[in-house]
Design a binder for these strands. Structure first.
Length: 228
DNA sequence: ACCCAGGTGGCCC
DNA sequence: GGGCCACATGGG
């Protein structure tokens, strides 16, 4: 049966949004990391912290020879703390880093390929069981370190999606399901989609606080709104 | 002196 | 299930 060829205007908004973002911002080349382990460390440090500081913390670890599962698992807490202090939450993040590495050793002898070589759901549950790993961190690790195609949701995704009327919820799982049921489950595309949403958020945040000048007319003004 | 950053876990109702 | 809070550093 020859199904009618959909013009771009009749495509799902979620796919159309991806195409507009990609056309405007271009490929983002995410995640900025050398290898899977560096992605994991970055994901654990990134929470509620500017990437600039995370990058510096990772560089510190790298120069200290600690950007490796076994080394980090064995490093004394004060040493780890000194290197990652710049990434904030220095009383919680170092312990999470070290404990996560110890878990990797227990689970797969520190072999990340082996660690990720299970079904997406199984790995995701295993990640979520670790201290400091919530849905976003788990999915960023799955997507960018493990090569598992999951749609990564973050505060930007929810803000943009709500403001342009894609959905009306803050619930992580619901937003994820929203995209996963409308966007083909493709690893490269899911990686790019999330990176593009962040690129758009950052582009919008700085120069144009209001959406009137949004380069791709998404009408999604930014700012978190008052807290407290 | 604020407000924010690619969250998470612990409470409370 | 949803809403609030502490956590902590550095930059605008």
């Amino acid at each position: 049966m020859a199904s009618p060829c959909p013009s771009s205007s009749t495509l799902d908004r979620e796919i159309n949004l991806f195409q507009r973002l990609l056309r405007h911002y271009g490929p983002q080349h995410w995640w900025p990391a050398q290898d899977a382990f560096e992605v994991i460390v970055g994901a654990l440090l990134m929470q509620q912290t500017a990437w600039r500081n995370v990058a510096e913390a990772i560089q510190n670890l790298k120069e200290a020879g600690l950007l490796e599962v076994r080394a980090l698992a064995a490093a004394p807490m004060p040493v780890i703390r000194r290197h990652v202090k710049i990434a904030g939450l220095y009383r919680t993040k170092p312990k999470r880093l070290r404990d996560f590495c110890r878990h990797l050793l227990n689970r797969s002898d520190g072999d990340l390929t082996r660690y990720f070589d299970r079904s997406t759901d199984v790995v995701r549950d295993d990640l979520l069981a670790q201290d400091g790993v919530g849905p976003e961190t788990a999915d960023s690790i799955l997507l960018y370190a493990g090569g598992h195609p999951v749609f990564l949701v973050d505060a930007y995704t929810i803000r943009i999606g709500r403001r342009i009327g894609l959905f009306d919820t803050n619930a992580y799982d619901d937003v994820q399901k929203h995209f996963e049921t409308r966007v083909p489950r493709d690893l490269a595309m899911y990686r790019e989609y999330h990176a593009l949403l962040v690129a758009h958020a950052k582009a919008l945040c700085r120069p144009t606080p209001s959406c009137n000048e949004c380069p791709i007319r998404l009408l999604c003004d930014f700012g978190r709104g008052r807290k407290r």
